[in-house]
Computed example of a mutant assay.
Amino acid sequence: MLRTPTGGAGHGTADAGDRLVSIGTVLNQLREEFPEVTISKIRFLEAEGLVEPQRTASGYRKFSPQDVERLALILRMQRDHYLPLKVIREHLEALERGEQIQLPAQSAGPQGEAAAAATPWEPEPDRPTAARIGRAELLAAAEVGEEELAEWESYGLIVPAADGGYDAETVTVAKLVADLGRFGLEPRHLRAVKAAADREAGLVEQIVAPLRRHRNPQTRAHAEATTKELAALSVRLHAALVQTALGVRFH
C-alpha cells in the first residue's frame, strides 16, 4: 500500500534539525529494501527534482525522514511498477494534492518475490529481437566504400557482431563517423572519443552489474531500463561538457 509522501521537492525540511541525516545514512536505510541503490542514484533523483534535501552552510545534503520516505516510494514505483520518472513525478504531485493514484498491478515485494521464486522467470516470447544488417547494407546506409569501413574497423569505431552483422546503433555510429569525416576528422582523431565511450560504458556496467545478479528476476529485468537511463544521462553530460568547453574557448 502506498504511503503519501510528506516531503520531497520543495519540502526538504524537518520539524527537528537533529532528525536530519546525511546521504550516507540515507543509503544505509534504503539498502535494506533496495540493495541496488547507490549514492549516484539518490543524487540523480535529486537532480531530477523528485526530492529536495536541505543543504548545510558547507553544501552537504541533509535528508529528513519525509525525504527518506519519499525516496523509498520513488524506488518502489520504479522497481515494482517500472514507471518512468515523468509518471512518478506526476503521481507524487497528485499525492501531495491529496488525490488517489492508480498504479499498475504490483508484482514485486515480499509476495511478488515468493511468486517469482515459485515460477522461474523466462523472457517474453514475443519480444522482438534487434534486427541486423549485412556489410553491404551498412556501406549503403553510411554512403561509404569498403576501404573506409575497413579503416573504421581497424580503429575499433565499428565492431561487427559475432555473426558478422551490424545492429541499428552501429549504423548510427557509421553515419556519424562519415559525417565527421566530411569535416576532416579522420578515424585516428576519433580514437579518444571511442576510448571515452568505453570508459563510460564501464562505469554504467559497474552500476547495473548488481542489478543483473540480484535474486529478484524483476530487479534483473530492471537492469535494462537502468542501463538506458544511465546511457542517456551520459550522452547529455558529454554534450553539455563539449558545449561548455567550446563556450570557454570562443568567448
Rank of each mutant, 00 (worst) to 15 (best):
E137A: 12
E143M: 14
Q78I: 09
I88Y: 06
L50D: 00
L246Y: 08
L149H: 13
G98F: 02
G109Q: 05
L185V: 12
E124C: 06
S40L: 09
E36H: 09
T244W: 02
R79I: 11
R43H: 02
V235R: 11
R236M: 12
Q100F: 06
E153G: 04
Q66R: 14
R3L: 12
P120E: 00
R132F: 08
I39D: 14
A14R: 00
V21G: 02
A131T: 07
A209Y: 15
I101Y: 11
L73P: 08
L73N: 12
V204S: 10
R97V: 09
I42S: 00
V173G: 11
K62M: 13
L233C: 06
E36R: 08
P35H: 02
Y166Q: 02
P160N: 05
V26R: 05
E146G: 08
Y155R: 07
K86N: 15
R249I: 04
A118P: 10
Y166D: 02
E90S: 14
Y60R: 15
V177D: 02
V171F: 02
A108R: 14
V68I: 14
D179F: 06
E96L: 15
V26Q: 00
I39F: 06
P84T: 08
K194R: 13
A140C: 07
P160Y: 07
L71K: 02
L246D: 01
P210A: 02
H91Q: 14
H189E: 15
G17A: 11
G202K: 10
L50G: 01
V26T: 03
G184A: 08
P187M: 08
P160R: 10
S234V: 04
I88P: 09
F34N: 02
A140P: 12
R79Q: 13
L2A: 03
G17E: 11
P187T: 04
A105G: 08
L73C: 07
Y60I: 14
R127Q: 03
E224W: 11
F34T: 05
I74W: 07
P160W: 02
Q206R: 15
L203A: 15
T56L: 11
V235K: 09
L30M: 13
Y60Q: 13
L139N: 01
I39K: 14
R249P: 01
I88D: 04
A114R: 04
D163R: 06
A117P: 08
H238V: 07
H81A: 09
G8D: 04
L73D: 08
D198M: 12
A150Q: 14
L157T: 03
G165D: 00
L103K: 04
A9T: 06
K86W: 13
L75M: 02
F183N: 08
L176W: 09
K228Y: 06
A178K: 14
V68H: 05
L211K: 10
P104V: 06
R43I: 03
A136L: 10
S154N: 01
T172Y: 14
G145H: 13
E153F: 05
N28K: 12
Q243S: 05
I88S: 10
I158W: 00
